[in-house]
Design a protein around this nucleic acid. Structure first.
Length: 292
DNA sequence: CGAGGTACCTGACAGC
DNA sequence: TGCTGTCAGGTACCTC
């Protein structure tokens, strides 16, 4: 579910909330979410008493650096989000002790993993569809793992300039620009919401083969990537449905977005109407009038 | 190589 | 009311 801005928002918040704390125990009612090590009890033994020394992100992957040169990888995938709070188990549900943070989270009945920290707070993974995954790695091995190694460049650092963007695209020989933007091995972190918004912002048709794009179109896509992703971070993510910040509160990008989930509305820029079609098995939202 | 389908899961919602 | 089909911020893996 979450894309780069949501994952970045989560990471920034976690840094404030859990850095330096020690993991005392872990609970789950969905052992399959933990992929590595395969046995959940081994996972529990391995993770206990490790201190959270860093919180970082690569593409949509979250890394918690743990003492003893380990890294905990969390991928939230669709519908997943991490929450920090203090809850207790009650009739098969996690209830917030303060009545606070989780009241803002409509999906708190989907907490399936809870890490108990040494100051009494908890880090929880809420994942309605259970696509999320958690893996414990030796730090060096994680860097070399296929899922991380295949990722393209991060789009936001200053050194990702227009030339880097064009070089990144060259990994592909052809393909519709919408699908290419979402290809994590080309550029890391863009998903369906932001790909739609970026192309609207750039006034480029999602269906156009990227090899047919003019220099001018490429330039406006490049600019739109920076602008839209930064806006997403500034607004602390998009909560179209179940994404929540670790506090349980919603992000704000869904009100700023111009096309995603707005089929049938007037294009805010021209006389057109927002349409929805499909490519690559995903919904494409666009304005056929001003995105040629 | 690219495109398209499937799988992994649980819901919300529209239409009959 | 209940059924059926479709849709949902992702990724891996398979076939053509």
């Amino acid at each position: 579910m979450p894309e780069l801005p949501e994952v970045e928002t989560t990471v920034r918040s976690l840094r404030k909330q859990i850095l330096g704390k020690r993991i005392k125990d872990v609970w789950t009612d969905a052992k399959k979410l933990v992929k590595k090590p395969e046995s959940f009890s081994d996972f529990g033994k391995e993770i206990k008493n490790r201190k959270i020394e860093s919180v970082s992100r690569r593409a949509k992957f979250i890394f918690l650096g743990l003492s003893g040169n380990k890294k905990l990888l969390v991928h939230q995938k669709m519908s997943g989000h991490l929450l920090v709070g203090e809850w207790q188990r009650n009739n098969g549900e996690w209830i917030s002790k303060s009545g606070g943070s989780l009241q803002n989270d409509p999906y708190n009945q989907y907490i399936h993993i809870v890490f108990f920290l040494d100051d009494g707070t908890q880090l929880a993974l809420s994942t309605l569809r259970k696509f999320s995954k958690v893996e414990l790695w030796d730090a060096d091995e994680l860097e070399e793992s296929k899922q991380i190694k295949k990722l393209g460049p991060e789009p936001l650092p200053k050194d990702f300039g227009f030339e880097s963007f064009k070089r990144a695209l060259n990994k592909r020989r052809s393909g519709k620009i919408k699908q290419v933007l979402m290809d994590q091995s080309v550029i890391a972190g863009i998903g369906n919401i932001y790909a739609n918004e970026i192309l609207w912002e750039a006034k480029v048709s999602p269906f156009k083969n990227f090899t047919k794009l003019s220099e001018k179109e490429l330039k406006s896509i490049f600019k739109a990537i920076k602008r839209v992703l930064k806006k997403g971070i500034e607004l602390q993510g998009a909560s179209y449905s179940d994404y929540r910040k670790p506090s349980g509160k919603k992000g704000g990008f869904q009100d700023w977005g111009r096309v995603y989930d707005r089929e049938g509305e007037d294009c805010p820029r021209c006389e057109g109407e927002i349409k929805r079609k499909k490519t690559g098995g995903r919904s494409v939202y666009f304005c056929p009038h001003c995105q040629e």
